[in-house]
Each structure stands twice: as C-alpha cells, then as structure tokens.
Amino acid sequence: METEKLFEITAYTENQVGLLSAIAGIFTRRSLNIEKLLVYPSQIAGIHKFKIITRAAEAQIQTVVLQIEKKVDVIKSYYEVDNERSCREIDDVRQFLQERETESNNI
C-alpha cells in the first residue's frame, strides 16, 4: 500500500457558480477528507484560485488533479508534496491563457 501524505492541490478556474461543489465531489466520492480549503481571486484578473490540502496516496492525487482539470470551467490544476512553492504555476497559467487567446483568434 502506497503511503499517504499531505498534498497541496491548486486549481485555477473561471468564476462559475457550482464549481466548488463539482470539485468537492471529486474528493467526496473517494472519501478523501479536505483538511484545508481556500478559494480566492488569483493574481490574474477574473481567474479564481482553489487551494486544497488533503491526505492521500500520490497515485490517487494524480488522478484527482486530472479529474479536477477535466471540469470544463477549470483552467489548470497542480499538486505539490511539500511547501516549497515556486512561481512557475502562475506563469504556466498565464502562458496557457495566452496560447488559448491566440488559438481563439485563429478560429
């Protein structure tokens, strides 16, 4: 059995009603207890940020993060084991949104 650890999951999302329960449901169906939950505006205007702390096995967290990102109104989701947080995430989201903007102009 893979050992359980504390993970910090982040998700950058559109501001849509109902997204909190959609994301919470991904944890509930696995009986994963959310230890800490924060939802607040991110550094990018109009984009919300979820921060979720939970205890689980890493293999499970990988699928959880992908299932969060699968929600139509979720832009990106990540997880990290320890507290060392880089600024890569927000740059990644910015770059993704820029690329999508270009793609949308090409349609």
Partner: peptide
C-alpha cells in the same frame, strides 16, 4: 445566435 466553437478553459 451565439455559436460556440471555443472555451478557453476547455
């Protein structure tokens, strides 16, 4: 009509 061909988060 508001045709949808693109959603930036999807």
């Amino acid at each position: 009509p508001k045709p949808c061909h693109f959603i930036r988060s999807y």
